[in-house]
Design a protein around this nucleic acid. Structure first.
Length: 849
RNA sequence: GGGCGCUUAGCUCAGCUGGCAAGAGCACCUCCCUUACAAGGAGGGGGUCGGGGGUUCGAGUCCCUCAGCGCCCACCA
């Protein structure tokens, strides 16, 4: 306990208290507590290779306010922090940072050093193991930056519970969960057409897609009908003509009905393809009949599958057309035409085939420019292609109506804050069109814990994988040896090979509840923390993180992983655009924190309604700073009036004004508590803040003279007890929002941390208020307000003496006023206060001066 | 094409189950060094609550409809 300084200031509070909290273990999770007394939070692990921006601070601070509330309520708050460091974003960053690229065919060279001057145009190849080492080195640095900002804004996480998605615990959990999924049949491998990013050369999942409007053109050309004449199709992908396996029209389309079950011949390549019927063919689109290629888009995949068409693949994984033409092209002219396209990118091939079609007189008219949505990998910059490959999947209801229904029901069971966010979950689940593809042909991530035996012919036995033993996890099949084999047998006929892929980063992130609560390795902790209480996150990752987490929990536990989910809003720049790096409007948190201070920035974040998009508003931070300074000064004043500087306690509150104030405060505590219980931190703050200003502006002024002892000891005692009680209550109510300044103020009159003190209770206040009427304070404040107004209007100082005040009002309000008349007289410097029943009015007569 | 959210003072936003003579902060204007606070305080001006219809004694608050903005989802040849 330290007496308040003469001139309280916010300077230095952040460093001072952050280090004391750390040293004192203020936020350490008490793992002896039973599940019922634990509040566990499934914190989003930020992508540490991404830039830190104010949007992150925004959401995390809101969650922290909730964490602090629950901690003060006496719960053991389980609040870990994770770093999402695996996956493509880190690989990209490492490639650019060090000027290297991963070449898995290279042997490990421990002496390999990245170039001194990285050249983005000429990245030096390095082995997979070395590449992963570089990734790990860089992520460690990135994590430090994030941790510093989180500590700076005062997140009350238990830093001993930190994890990384590439760390051993996350790897073990991911692999163990995968093996469990595999055993249950919730995970499986399949060879199938998949969406493919040609730049990163990996498969991607439905959840990672986004549509982008792209310029394109309809190209119209004809297929030769059997009896002569042509049937014209329109396509935006003419370069896939060689991959065409059929034409399709709607079964009811009169124009093409006669062609069904017949065949037509393609231009240039002279390949015979059937004309088929399918409901998905839209008579309104183009010419009403479409080319089915393997594969131009996902509709092609549907047609190919449902109509059982052959596959005619012309696209390599690098996005270029294959060197050899499909076997179906037999004519010399056709093979020559294909040779013109071989090896070209789709874009170049498109340009060339248009020329070829035009030269051959096959193009009907000029291509018609259009813009149309094209699927992209969300992190990619070239359109996705579809290639057939062997991949791992996890069942997510995309092919199983029963599971889908179960997952929808889980979504309804979950309490969403705000509730409307559930709509996004529902539309996502309802729109699923396949299982979750979790394998990625990349390097920095959690490997699949299995190997394949090699036959005597050197061909992997994909249908009989060798699984890792759970006790051996985590394993890396590219360096570890499967049970029953020796290292020398790797890659040899009769030996084995490791599965080369890694898991999608969401396949790990979807297990954050399992990772943090110790599902795989700490049954005691697991029992105390799972299922968790709260999943806080951004709305943009409902379809990925939130959904995938429910999928995994449903598979393993057949239950929700948490009871509540809170969704924060977007941060918009002052022009109401969503902040993003590409727009160059990102403000770094460090700069903002430096300028305004943590409590002020936190105030801005927690003023925003849950789930509401919010502008980055510097003004709001200034308001928060003002509130913090006000708290310092008001607290200093209150404590200066208390005997022993506030260390004493107890005593009775007897005066009407004091009791009325406490009665109002009791209502505020109740309202704030209710709001917090409903995860509405912003409303809790609003109630508290409104009262706090009323307390400072009116109550403190009204009670001041009495607190100074000008009205005798009894009145002073009552004031002092009320002041002490109110101050402790207000500091407690504000603590979740402004942890630094409240801790400072608390330390002036208490030992220990306010953040470990009990959340204020309404009943103790109500007891001291003794059933007093909240109206009393309101009436007193109103009259005082009129007196001030009179002085201000007269352009006189507030110290000006008042000769006479005549208050006219109803009996009830006059009675209230009578009870506090001496306080009003003192605060207003009034010589004579008269009252009369009648229409409400306050007449103020200033003294001469 | 389906869905969700938003539209309240110049700006950023509250206004929860209908009672508001419409709020806060910032900005603007006036005044005040008052012994907690000049990184302050006291006051003031400013809004037909997006448009239109309806329910109701009463609507910013409920219903319908239209418009604009943002977002989510969708099999977009």
């Amino acid at each position: 306990m330290v007496a308040p300084p003469e001139k309280p200031s916010l300077d230095g509070l952040e460093q001072k208290w952050a280090s004391r909290w750390e040293a004192g273990g203020a936020y350490t999770f008490d793992r002896t507590r039973p599940r019922a007394e634990v509040f566990s939070i499934d914190t989003p692990p930020p992508t540490i290779s991404g830039s830190l921006h104010m949007g992150s601070v925004f959401g995390y601070v809101q969650t922290d306010a909730l964490a602090r509330f629950h901690r003060m309520r006496g719960q053991a708050v389980f609040y870990p922090m994770g770093w999402d460091d695996n996956g493509l974003p880190t690989e990209r960053r490492v490639e650019n940072h060090f000027g290297v690229r991963c070449d898995p065919s290279l042997d490990y060279d421990p002496d390999f050093e990245p170039p001194a001057k990285p050249d983005p145009k000429r990245k030096i190849p390095c082995s997979r193991r070395r590449f992963v080492e570089l990734c790990l080195a860089l992520t460690v640095e990135d994590e430090k930056v994030f941790e510093q900002v989180w500590r700076r804004v005062g997140l009350s996480v238990d830093w001993s519970l930190t994890y990384a998605t590439i760390g051993p615990r996350a790897q073990r959990t991911s692999q163990q969960a995968f093996l469990a999924d595999l055993a249950r049949g919730d995970a499986y491998a399949a060879e199938a057409p998949t969406l493919w990013d040609v730049t990163d050369q990996t498969a991607v999942a439905q959840a990672e897609l986004e549509d982008r409007e792209q310029p394109g053109a309809y190209h119209r050309y004809g297929f030769a009908r059997p009896g002569g004449g042509k049937v014209f199709i329109e396509t935006t992908r003419p370069e896939l003509l060689a991959a065409c396996v059929a034409l399709v029209a709607h079964p009811d389309d009169e124009r093409y009905r006669s062609l069904f079950a017949s065949t037509v011949r393609s231009p240039l390549f002279d390949v015979e393809v059937p004309v088929v019927a399918h409901e998905l063919a839209d008579p309104e689109k183009g010419s009403g009949i479409a080319m089915i290629c393997t594969f131009g888009d996902t509709t092609d995949v549907t047609w190919w599958r449902e109509l059982q068409l052959p596959i005619r693949n012309i696209l390599e994984r690098n996005g270029r057309l294959r060197a050899e033409p499909p076997e179906a092209i037999v004519s010399e002219a056709g093979r020559a035409a294909y040779a013109e396209l071989a090896g070209k990118t789709t874009k170049a091939a498109r340009a060339r085939i248009v020329e070829l079609l035009a030269e051959a007189g096959e193009l009907d008219g000029e291509p018609t420019p259009i813009t149309h949505p094209v699927k992209f990998y969300e992190r990619g910059d070239r359109p996705l292609e579809i290639v057939t490959s062997r991949q791992w999947y996890i069942r997510n209801g995309g092919r199983d109506p029963e599971l889908r229904q179960t997952l929808l029901e889980r979504g309804r069971e979950l309490r969403w804050h705000p509730a409307f966010m559930r709509q996004r979950y529902e539309s996502w689940v309802e729109g699923l069109n396949g299982d979750w593809l979790i394998s990625r042909q990349r390097f920095f991530g959690v490997p699949f814990p299995l190997w394949y035996p090699l036959g005597d012919d050197g061909v992997p036995g994909y249908d009989r994988p060798i699984l890792a033993e759970v006790a051996s996890l985590p394993v890396d099949p590219s360096s570890d040896v499967p049970p029953g084999y020796t290292a020398e047998q790797r890659g040899r006929p009769g030996g084995f090979v490791g599965d080369p892929d890694i898991m999608d980063t969401w396949a790990t992130s979807s297990l954050t509840p399992q990772i943090t609560t110790g599902w795989a390795d700490d049954p005691d902790l697991f029992a105390r923390t799972f299922p968790m209480d709260l999943r806080p996150q951004g709305p943009e990752i409902i379809r990925t993180w939130l959904f995938a987490t429910i999928v995994r929990s449903q598979a393993e536990f057949a239950r929700l992983p948490w009871s509540d989910a809170s969704l924060n809003g977007w941060i918009l720049d002052p022009d109401r655009k969503k902040m993003s790096k590409s727009k160059g409007n990102v403000v770094t948190p460090a700069a903002v924190l430096d300028e305004h201070g943590s409590d002020a920035v936190r105030y801005w974040a927690v003023s925003a309604r849950p789930g509401t998009d919010t502008a980055l508003d510097v003004n709001q931070m200034k308001v928060g700073r003002r509130l913090a300074i006000k708290l310092l000064n008001a607290s200093r004043f209150v404590l200066s009036r208390l005997p022993d500087g506030g260390a004493g306690g107890g005593g009775a509150v007897t005066e009407a004004l004091d009791r009325s104030m406490l009665a109002q405060l009791a209502g505020v505590v109740a309202a704030a508590t209710t709001a917090f219980e409903g995860f509405d931190y912003a409303r809790a703050l609003e109630h508290t803040e409104r009262f706090f200003w009323r307390f400072c502006d009116d109550y403190l002024e009204l009670v001041k003279a009495r607190a100074y002892g000008e009205e005798g000891t009894a009145g002073a005692d009552s004031a002092q007890h009320a002041l002490a009680l109110a101050l402790d209550t207000l500091v407690g109510l504000l603590a979740p929002f402004l942890p630094f300044v409240t801790e400072e103020v608390w330390s002036w009159s208490h030992e220990g941390s306010v953040h470990r003190s009990p959340w204020p209770g309404a009943s103790a206040l109500a007891e001291q208020a003794g059933g007093a009427d909240p109206l009393v304070l309101d009436v007193a404040a109103a009259v005082l307000g009129e007196i001030r107004k009179a002085k201000t209007t007269a352009q006189r100082s507030l110290r000006t003496e008042v000769a006479k005040v005549v208050v006219s009002d109803g009996a009830e309000r006059l009675a209230a006023l009578a009870a506090v008349a001496p306080d009003v007289v003192d605060a207003g410097r009034v010589a004579e206060l008269l009252t009369a029943e009648g229409e409400p009015s306050v007449v103020v007569e200033l003294a001469e001066g």
